[in-house]
Design a protein around this nucleic acid. Structure first.
Lengths: 228, 228
DNA sequence: CAGTGGTCTAGACCACGCC
DNA sequence: GCGTGGTCTAGACCACTGC
């Protein structure tokens, strides 16, 4: 029960302990014990307790309010898994919508690249058309069925052990081309969001290039970026 | 000579003092006075000095090395103008274009927020309309003239010592409203890229909220994000 | 070895939010 | 008034670096 050992600094141990407590036992907006309470509970000085709380604040897990207390941040889930790469599937799920994907085209034979075209929908509403190009050498044996079964990023990570380290994205607005308009169920020349994404693995090899066309009236792209 | 007054916390005063000293008198790799030296020079306790140094480290200005000392970071230049990625000015310059900004509106009196509306152009071509909201409490004394003179992010960092740690951005496509269309010199209902950005400082306080409307035919937004 | 930053204590007073 | 976080002190010992 005592968090006190001598392998790690005490404040680090307290960070870990509180981190777990917050994730497992507490909810957004809940108040943490006061600094003086934590001192007494764990037999620590206030300086040490404050070091730990400062770290939790830096991690975005808690918010401290002068005269009121320390509270679990509203967006713990976001705070802990941010910096993640963009995933249509994840975004839709987080919005409480049911994502579906139809693979319209999938070519792999006789080419250095795997090419696919997918129509993505949420709650049955067409949202975006994606054209994706992958280096065949990095994804040997990838089949249409794989892509239909699970999110591409899951496949990359779990099957091919490719980790995305950098994603470069470019956004612009435009008007729908005829073929995309038909797929998305919108009028020709309706506004669309275009997105070009190149992702790189830990060796700085490009492992994906995707062009997406999304309905302006249905789709928002959200991204967080951090400074080192 | 004494930095001691009672308007600001002592460690904040020391942050400002060292910040200026580093920028004006020191170069990359130079060693700062030791913690105990700073204690004596300014008549402060070590805890206070360490609070200040921790803040400078978070800002990326110094690097601390156990057993060796505290040193000016190699990349002070980067550290000081880093917000590059999110800055219209920087983005345009990197594309070899000449950015200009006209402040159309600027309200600050009697409000907890500072509100401004700016028209941004590149090589004389209107590119985007930006509506920005800042917490007045964090940017006391900010004037229209300041904003007209230099990029907002430069002001934030150099004058107010606010460092952006996270930027959350949301993109969507839409059609231009009449007033924006006129400012941008495009037809009403022409496609535009909309961008909503909230930036947070190291304390996870929101320090900026901006809504931008950009011409689809002229503007592309490029962003890189990193994992780990 | 001396000097550096890293950790930690036990206490003090201040400023803020709330009842 | 009371409890909260915010600031600050004066000291201690540890761990690391470099001579």
């Amino acid at each position: 029960m005592t968090p006190i050992s001598r392998k790690q600094p005490l404040y680090d141990q307290l960070v870990d302990l509180l981190h777990e407590k917050i994730e497992n036992e507490m909810g957004a907006g809940d108040m943490l014990p006061s600094e003086r309470e934590l001192c007494e509970t764990y037999g620590l000085s206030r300086t040490t307790v404050r070091l730990a709380l400062a770290e939790l604040e830096r991690q975005g897990l808690v918010t401290r309010q002068h005269g009121r207390g320390t509270f679990v941040s509203e967006s713990v889930r976001e705070a802990t898994n941010l910096m993640g790469t963009y995933s249509f599937t994840e975004q839709m799920k987080s919005m409480g919508r049911v994502p579906t994907t139809v693979v319209l085209e999938f070519d792999t034979i006789g080419d250095p690249v795997i090419r696919m075209k997918r129509l993505r929908a949420a709650d049955g509403i067409p949202m975006m058309v994606e054209r994706t190009y992958l280096p065949a050498s990095e994804f040997l044996g990838l089949s249409r069925r794989d892509v239909e079964a699970q999110p591409l990023y899951d496949i990359m990570e779990k099957v091919y052990h490719e980790t995305i380290r950098v994603a470069e994205e470019e956004f612009c607005a435009s008007v729908a081309r005829k073929d995309d308009a038909e797929l998305l169920g919108i009028g020709e020349a309706a506004p669309v969001l275009k997105l070009y994404r190149t992702t790189f693995n830990v060796k700085n090899t490009a492992i994906e290039y995707t062009r997406s066309v999304a309905r302006a009236d249905q789709f928002r792209y959200k991204v967080s970026h951090y400074r080192g």
